[in-house]
């Protein structure tokens, strides 16, 4: 996964972010279980579930990441309902492989082992660099530590993540529903939570893709969409 996105100039060396990563690696030690660096663009690190809470105070006090950007979670389970665009039209466009349901658990940059991952992003104003921090939710408890003691702004973000993914942040004083009515059942952003309107009426396929001006002149002169290679 890590090398899936090639930068346009692979030779770019990002000294600032490399140095930052080295410092974090040295300080966190075993707590750091993964990292990913896109030179000139961004930095991801993954810490162990137990050290999630202490990572916040480390980043805030030691590395001067004062600005709290956001906190959320990801459900890496492939959707049990298949890809939404696996309709006949899309298959005709050369997407046959997309129609089948995947079962393997995915993982993003900096890796991951469990289904749920928490991710948060903080920003340093002194170096003008942001960093995305991830951690796995343990499969049994789905619980990591809270960040609100170091970043009080994480309060609402953790409440949102908790209600949307059904995860738990230990130490949060008021982990009640933020958006959803209190009687709501289920956790909407989990991949196995069906989007009912799509279940009732399946997606008709990509029928409203318009021709791009450049391609219009060259490729679509024969006006046959199916002959076109989407990966051109």
């Amino acid at each position: 996964m890590a090398d899936a996105t090639e930068t346009e100039e692979p030779v770019v060396v990002d000294e600032a972010r490399s140095a930052l990563l080295e410092a974090i690696t040295a300080d966190l030690g075993d707590a750091l279980v993964g990292s990913h660096l896109l030179p000139g663009k961004d930095l991801w690190i993954r810490v162990s579930s137990e050290s999630w809470g202490s990572t916040a105070s480390y980043l805030r006090s030691k590395q001067q990441f004062r600005f709290f950007n956001f906190l959320s979670a990801i459900d890496w389970l492939p959707s049990p309902f298949g890809r939404s665009h696996g309709s006949s039209v899309d298959v005709a466009l050369g997407n046959e492989d997309e129609a089948e349901v995947e079962t393997t658990l995915g993982s993003g940059y900096a890796g991951g082992e469990t289904r749920f991952q928490v991710l948060a992003r903080v920003h340093s104003l002194t170096t003008n660099m942001g960093i995305t921090v991830k951690a796995d939710f343990p499969e049994d408890s789905l619980s990591v530590g809270t960040w609100i003691n170091d970043y009080p702004g994480a309060n609402w973000h953790e409440r949102e993540a908790a209600e949307m993914f059904g995860v738990h942040f230990a130490g949060h004083p008021n982990l009640t529903a933020l958006y959803l009515p209190s009687a709501f059942e289920g956790h909407p952003l989990r991949k196995d939570f069906p989007l009912l309107s799509r279940m009732v009426k399946p997606w008709p396929g990509i029928v409203d893709v318009e021709a791009m001006p450049e391609i219009e002149q060259s490729a679509t002169a024969d006006s046959s969409a199916s002959t076109e290679n989407p990966e051109s």
């Binding site: 996964m1 899936a4 996105t5 663009k41 961004d42 991801w44 950007n69 956001f70 959320s72 466009l93 993003g108 940059y109 991710l119 992003r121 942001g130 995305t132 990509i206 893709v209 021709a211 791009m212 001006p213 450049e214 391609i215 490729a219 679509t220 969409a225 076109e228 290679n229 989407p230 990966e231 051109s232």
Partner: peptide, 29 residues
């Protein structure tokens, strides 16, 4: 317009871009 395939398939990966929106920093992960 840059050269973009007609059917947009985005390679696997993650990106976070934030911009200074009228109300403040807005970003999409």
């Amino acid at each position: 317009m840059a050269k973009v395939p007609r059917i947009i398939k985005v390679p696997a990966g993650e990106a976070f871009i934030e911009t200074e929106n009228p109300l403040g920093v807005m970003g999409y992960y």
